[in-house]
Structure formats: C-alpha cells, structure tokens
Design a protein around this nucleic acid. Structure first.
Lengths: 341, 341
DNA sequence: ATGAAAGCGCTAACAC
DNA sequence: GTGTTAGCGCTTTCAT
C-alpha cells in the first residue's frame, strides 16, 4: 500500500507500470486502446492508475504524438458579446470532438502573437480566427518549407487568403435592413460603417449600396459615417449626424454596439428613436432585445457559425484542402427602433 | 543556402546546430542565456536560426523544464462583458511577465473540466478562477501526494478555501448604493440578488442589509428577489416587482445586466425609470453609461482586479504561501437611473 | 566557452 | 497479448 511517494512529484507511467507489474507500453495501450490489452491486464492497470493517482502527462504525449487536441481561437474583441456567442458554438462542437479550446484576444498588449506561437510550436493543432486582420506572417506559405497550420476564418475573413471560412451573409443582411427601411417609407437612409480596412465593412456597405440602388435611393457620401464597431464610435456617429445639414431619417449601423451608442447620444440631444429617426443594428446580441427602444437588427446565426467553423477545422485537419466558403443566412429582426415615416 | 529541407517538418535545434556548426547545447544556451556564449558564436547561432526559420518547440522545452509559462483563467460567463475587462487586466500583466493566458468558459458543455486537466497535466502552471463555484475536487490537497496547482480566485472566491484571492469590496459597494438611495429620500428599497449559492450574492446582500439597518430601514423579504446575474433574470425580477402589492421605490440589482433587463421589462409595462422607480446596478460595464436611462451603478476596478490577480499568481508560484486576500475599493457612479423621491 | 550525453514522460514499431 | 527499444526536441550537468 505504501507507494513511498512522499515527494511532490507527479506519478508517471513508470509508477503505474511498476505497480501493475507490466511494462510502460502496456500501460500506454491499456489507456489509449483498451481492447488491445487483455481483460485482466486492463483491470490491473486501471487499478494501478487509481492507486497512484496517475494522469497522462499531455506534454510528453504531445511531444511523442506530434498532435495536441487543442485549438486556438483568435477573437478581435472579447468585450463584444457577439463573439462570446460564436465561442460558445465553437466550444460545444470542439468538446464533443474531444478538443480543448484556447481563447485569445487579438488586441494589444498581448496581441495574438503568443497564441500564434502556440500553434507554431505544436501546442495547438490549428486555429480559428474571428479576426480577418491577422498579421501577414501567419498567412505566408511558411518560411522555408514549414508546414502551414490549419487556419479557419469565421465571421471575418481575409480577402484572397483562401482556406476554409464560415460567415453569415453580410451583404444580404445589409440589404434586408435597407429593404425594411425602404418598406417603411424611408428614402433618406444613412450608414455607419465599421473600420475601413475590415472585410465586414466592405461586405455590408456593398449590400447597403446594392439595395439602395434597387430602391432607386441615393447613397450620399456625407451619410456614410465611419465607425469602428465600438460603442463610443456610435456616439461619435451620432454627433456627426447631428452636425449634418440634411439628415437621414433612418440609419443602418454596422453592429449593435454602435447602434446603442448612437441611439444613446441622440437621446441626450433630444433626438428620440424611433420618433425622430429609425435605427437598425447588426448582430442581434442579447442586449438588442432589451435596449430602450428594443433594437431592430440583423441576426447572425452565431451558434451555427461557431459550430460550422469547428467542423471546417476538423475537415481541414483531415486533409480536405478545399477552400470552402460557407455562407449562412442572416435574418431581419424587427423591433421598436424602426417605424414608418 | 540549400538546407535540403523540403519536407514539411519544422526545423529543430539540431538543424540550427548543424547550420551554425555548434552543438545543440550551445544553440540552447545562445537562445536562453545569450551571455553564456561568445559573441561570435551567438551571432552565428542567431543567423542559423534566421536561415532555418527555427522556433523553439515549447512542448519539448516544457517537458524538460517541467514548467509551461501558461496560465488558465476560468470564466463563469464570457458573455458578460464585465469578465472580459478582468481578462484584459490579467492578460496585460501576464504578457508582461511572458505568460500565455488560456481562457475557458466554465459553463457547460465544455465546462471547466478540460482546462482543469490542462493544469493537472502540467500544460499550464496554474489558474485564476473568476468562478467561486469550482468543482470541489480542484480544491482537495491533491490525490496521493500530488502537488496542488497554484489557484488564485478573482472577483469571486470560495468560502473557506484559503489561498490567494482578489476581489472588490462587494459589501461596501452595496452599502454605497443604499446610502445613495437613502440620501435621495428612498425608504422602501428592494434588492435583486445573484444566485443563492454565489458568494457575491451573500456579500452584496450583507452590505445591503447592513446599510439598511444603519438607515433604520426595513429589509423586507418580499422585496428581496432572486436572480442569477443574467439579463433575463432581471426581466423576471421586474415581473415579480409588478406583482407586488406594495412596491419598493428603489431597487439595487446585483449586477448591471440584470438591471438592464429589469428596467427594460418595467418600461414595457409603462413603468419609467427613474420617474417611477430608481435603479442601481453593480459592475459599471461599458453599456451602463449608454443605456437609456444611463445606469447609476457601483464600479468595480476591473483592470486592477485582473492585474492584482496575476500578481498574486506569480507570488504563489514563487512560494509565497500566504493566503492573501486583497480587497479593492468599489465606487458609486451616479447617473440618471436614480433620482430623489 | 563549448561539447557529449543523459534524460523529461510518453508512444509506436518491432519482436516474441 | 506483452515487452523491448528507440526516439519526439529540448535543457543541463559534467567534462574538457
């Protein structure tokens, strides 16, 4: 009964082997491939594992197997609730497949660098990026024959980067928003965009412009206000809106967070939504339903995007080289922040 | 120039050694302890590293060093923006110290299990839990002589668990809220709590009761409404409030999210905040300033909590066994959701 | 200042 | 079905 293990060292496979009176190889097999070992041996090993309190040292296993069972997810902004829902989807699919999900915020100071090293060092098998603006060196073919890690883009992507990618129909979503507004009788419609270099900005702007054209409405430059997806840029956009000589009667904001900042700042200046202006957001984060007024918005199938992203990751791991782009449908959710003119 | 590496294998320290015409030991030293190696050798090694595109294989290094430079953070709910700010604090302190931060949501389905295994398997040096309700087996002295991993609690904690811990003054914060409300002339004050088994619930309730007593006000059982920190439980609380025969004129909600749900649902029933009721939240997440009405709340020093938590982790790693409890001050932020009766 | 060599804990051929 | 053995890539004595 005395295992003479009074040290603080963890038990190793050796300890188990000794206790069970078998070789380390057998212990390894008993744990990884139970059927490749006789009933009796298996039981003896399992008991020895109990006794010693053994747990596989994954580091050693990974060093040997050259695989990790871990996946890194790069998130542009953990503070945005939208992303946490995507994560939930990824995590549920990943845990079903026995994968561990490592999450990292790509904003400074940590930036993505350390987690990228994780992948480079084989501490993770690949990554899913929710950030389309990855440092370019991640996307090179790999210096000098190095294997390129599995990289899946979700939500955002990188133009021309190839590889698997999952997203919602951003242009289509923006079109729905405009259709809704136009249907309500709005003819003067503006748009607060995301950062200029963001792919979502371009996709949503494109859908916006296309729908406007379809309705014979003019896209005015001064009604296109630059934002950055953060609350405070919605505030700035409201200030810009107020300074306008001719004002749009309806605005599409490129995400919900900005919409909240926008509505809030207008409110402080006595401009009421939806009485004085109709506002549409994008994402449908939880708060959208509970803002005052409740926000009309474009819903992204967040959970599905997450799950599809992980599925794409698995495919890629299994050598499916296909540069598959999955586009999931967006949906218009009508609430109180929009009304007929 | 031709390194004959057309395979997909990553360059190893061997490749660098060969290229630089030194031993692997020297490469290792040149990289880890530059001054233990001659100028010329160092340069040669560095050049070889460039040429080969070598990066240390952390797995192998960890196996050898028996340490990882990674830390796991357990988050009860990534969807709550409050936690992402704590994370920002942890990450900035951690990256300064060369640590990688691994984040995991403790909610099902992934649960905390897989990441806990991370620690058990020496894939991470320890963990910071923002969740006080950890599975008990994490807190045992460790089966059979196994070393107990470093565990720091931040925000939440576990009663009687010992170990380092960082939090804000929850009771004091709740007291401030009551003082504010009482100062505004409110005598009928209710409280929407967190989950019954949560330590924050108890701490804040305690502060609430203490301040009420100080002001000679009655804590009525039917004015204590149970919540769970989620938006929708604020909605339920509002419905409960509406059903009350005698209603409080002011409510303290145990966090901001619930406050939003509460105000929103009251609004739908024609009850205006702050005209008909004053509401105070807790946390001061970004949205608090931009809700309509802007939310009076108790601010937690989120970034400091995160940074202090990592500092406590480092201390513990260095053997400072002290069961230190750091309590950071909370602050009342007065906005529009409260007003004199 | 540098090299040789012994592992860290595990797994996968390959024998038997 | 089980054991032997040779590493995975790195660091670190111990020599020189």
């Amino acid at each position: 009964m005395e295992t003479a293990d009074l040290s603080s060292a963890l038990p190793t496979i050796q300890d188990v082997a000794r206790t069970a009176n078998v070789s380390t190889a057998t212990v390894s097999r008993a744990l990884s491939f139970p059927d490749k070992v006789s009933e009796g041996t298996r039981l003896r090993v399992l008991r020895a594992v109990e006794q010693t309190g053994y747990a596989v040292n994954q580091i050693a296993r990974n060093l040997r197997r050259q695989t990790t069972g871990a996946i890194v997810v790069l998130v542009p902004n953990l503070g945005n609730q939208f992303f946490s829902m995507i994560l939930a989807g990824i995590e549920s699919a990943a845990s079903r497949a026995g994968y561990t999900v490592l999450i990292s915020d790509t904003r400074p100071p940590a930036g993505s660098q350390m987690l990228l090293d994780y992948v480079r060092n084989n501490r993770a098998d690949g990554l899913i990026s929710l950030d389309g603006a990855l440092p370019p060196h991640m996307l090179t073919t790999g210096d000098e024959g190095r294997r390129r890690p599995v990289l899946v883009f979700a939500c955002e992507w990188r133009e021309g980067a190839g590889g698997p990618s999952v997203r919602c129909d951003n242009a289509g979503g923006a079109e729905m928003a405009v259709d809704h507004l136009a249907g309500l009788g709005h003819a003067r419609i503006g748009h607060v965009t995301g950062p200029v270099d963001n792919v979502l900005t371009q996709a949503r702007l494109h859908g916006f412009a296309r729908a406007m054209a379809r309705h014979g409405l003019e896209v005015r430059d001064d009604w296109l206000i630059g934002g950055d997806f953060l609350l405070r840029s919605g505030v700035s956009a409201a200030q810009a809106w107020i300074r306008l000589n001719e004002r749009p009667s309806a605005m599409l904001l490129a995400n919900d967070e900005m919409a909240f900042g926008f509505i809030s700042e207008l409110h402080r200046h006595g401009v009421d939504t939806p009485r004085d202006i109709s506002v549409v957001g994008f994402d449908d984060i939880d708060m959208a339903e509970r803002y005052i007024p409740a926000l009309t918005t474009i819903r992204q199938p967040r959970r599905e995007i997450g799950e599809a992203a992980f599925a794409a990751f698995l495919d890629a791991m299994n050598g499916d080289t296909a540069d598959s782009v999955r586009t999931l449908p967006a949906a218009l959710i009508v609430r109180e922040s929009t009304r007929a003119i």
